[in-house]
Amino acid sequence: MRKAKLIEFPQHGDEKGYLVVIEEKLDVPFEIKRVFYIYGSQRDALRGKHANRKSEFMLINVSGTSKVRVDYGNSTEEFDLNRAHVGVYIPKMVWKEMFDFSEDSVLLVLCSELYDPDEYIRDKAVYYSEVNQ
Rank of each mutant, 00 (worst) to 15 (best):
G17K: 02
E113N: 10
E130T: 10
V20N: 04
I38W: 05
Q42Y: 12
S112I: 00
G64F: 05
Y120T: 11
K3V: 02
F30T: 00
H85F: 13
N82A: 14
T65F: 04
Q42C: 07
I60T: 04
N82E: 12
T65S: 13
G73K: 09
L110W: 06
E113T: 03
P10L: 07
S112G: 04
N61R: 11
Q133G: 13
A51E: 02
E78Q: 15
R69L: 13
N61P: 12
K49G: 09
M98N: 05
N132S: 15
A84V: 10
V86Y: 08
L110T: 03
D100I: 03
R83Q: 14
K92L: 02
L108S: 06
H50L: 08
I121Y: 05
V68S: 02
L110A: 06
Y72G: 00
M58L: 09
H85A: 12
R47N: 07
G64K: 01
V35D: 03
N74A: 06
K25M: 15
F101L: 07
R47D: 04
V21H: 10
G73M: 12
K16I: 09
D80Y: 12
F30D: 00
P117L: 03
Q11F: 10
E119K: 07
K124C: 07
K33S: 00
R2Q: 15
E8V: 09
N61F: 08
L114H: 10
G87N: 09
P10Y: 06
V94W: 04
E24C: 01
D100M: 06
G17A: 04
T65R: 13
K96F: 11
V131L: 08
P117Y: 08
K54T: 09
R122E: 15
D100Q: 11
Y39P: 05
F79Q: 03
R34I: 04
V131D: 04
V28W: 00
A4D: 02
G87M: 09
K3L: 10
K124G: 08
I90L: 06
L59D: 01
V21T: 13
S63D: 10
Y115R: 07
N52L: 08
D71M: 14
Y89N: 01
Y115L: 04
P10M: 07
G48A: 07
V86L: 07
K67T: 09
P91M: 04
F30W: 01
R53T: 11
F79V: 06
F36Q: 07
L81T: 02
I38A: 11
A84R: 07
S129G: 11
D100F: 04
V68G: 01
V109K: 00
L107V: 15
R122I: 11
Y120N: 12
L59R: 00
K92H: 11
E31L: 06
F57A: 06
D123N: 15
E78A: 13
R43F: 12
R2Y: 10
N82W: 07
C111R: 02
Q133F: 08
V70I: 13
C111F: 02
R43A: 14
P29S: 04
D71Q: 10
V21P: 01
R34F: 00
E15V: 12
D44W: 08
V62H: 03
D100L: 05
F30R: 00
A125Y: 08
N61M: 12
Q11E: 14
N74T: 08
T76F: 10
Y127G: 04
S105E: 09
D118K: 14
I121E: 02
V21R: 11
V62I: 15
D27M: 08
E113P: 03
I90S: 00
S55V: 12
